[in-house]
Amino acid sequence: MSLIFEHFNHWVVVILMMIGLYIVITANNLVKKVVGLNIFQSAVFLMYITMGKVVGGTAPILAEGVTQYSNPLPHVLILTAIVVGVATTAVGLSLVLRIKSAYGTIEENEFQNKEDVI
């Protein structure tokens, strides 16, 4: 039973990753694909942050009378990763906009059909 609690965070992370991946693969709409990617990525963020947590610790900002801090390193890594994520999202969405103006649709199967015509 304790095992379940100790790993609960990890498993939720796994489930979120699966959901994100599932959306990316199945979504026909490109915007939804981007949303899926974001969910997938943020699950990974959660994984890192989870591993940095110390129960009984507190945020790694110096305070008087606190001895136990959580690990700051994963936080730093994920800060970077979040930025990377938003950068990717921005580029992805601008691609979506261009696809819309070039093809008139952002449904994957529809513009695939149009590609065949060419």
């Binding site: 943020s42 942050i49 940095g52 945020a59 801090y69 936080h75 994920i78 800060l79 930025v83 994520g85």
Partner: peptide, 19 residues
């Protein structure tokens, strides 16, 4: 919110403003 509970205040800050 989860990041805040996990002590990652800086990350929460970023995630809120970015995500």
């Amino acid at each position: 919110a989860l990041f805040v509970t996990l002590d990652a205040v800086d990350v929460a800050f970023t995630e809120a403003s970015v995500g």
